[in-house]
Amino acid sequence: MTAANQLYSVFRNLVISNSNPTNVRTLFTATTRFREVVDRKEMLKTVPKLDEGTQGEQSVDIDYSMNKHELFPTIDTPNKLFNGVPFKDIPVFNIRVSKNNTILSLTDAKGTPKLIRSCGIEGFKNTRKGTNIAAQATAITIGSKAFEQGYKTVRVRVRGLGPGRMAAIKGLQMTGLQIISITDSTRVSWTPPRPRKQRKL
């Protein structure tokens, strides 16, 4: 009984100290109604969709201004010069994106790793790893480090879908690196081995 009284007095104090000088307990009538989940499926519909870094996927507009011949590689592309270096010898930024993390690594044209950085190394832990902010921060860190080491022009290769997909590329650009091409190397198979079973929602 005493414990209940104590709890009540604490609660009253809380209420009074918050914003109620008139000594009247506020009644919350609406909150319970809003909190109540009517249907799980309907609730899931209202939840905003996860950003997968695929802006422009659904758009149907045609951009006539872009010169198609300069936008896409040709058979001569590997030997084309960019700042005096052929395309095939330009270092590559590999961005590995997943739902929960983003890993960036810089390799030379042969594939030897030079720098590596992920959202986890950057200091973001748990769910925060899988955000676009974390990806951008990581990209800025590794990008500026690469810039200091003398990498000026890079190719970018992205793998996977996730919140960090666009953010990482933007972050790299913000550091002053010149990105000459973006390649998607997401592994897609039309005859894959059996994937894991579906999540229960």
Binding site: E70, F72, T77, I179, S181
Partner: peptide, 8 residues
């Protein structure tokens, strides 16, 4: 770097 590649 030939397939699925776009120049910036």
């Amino acid at each position: 770097f030939i397939a699925r590649t776009v120049f910036v």
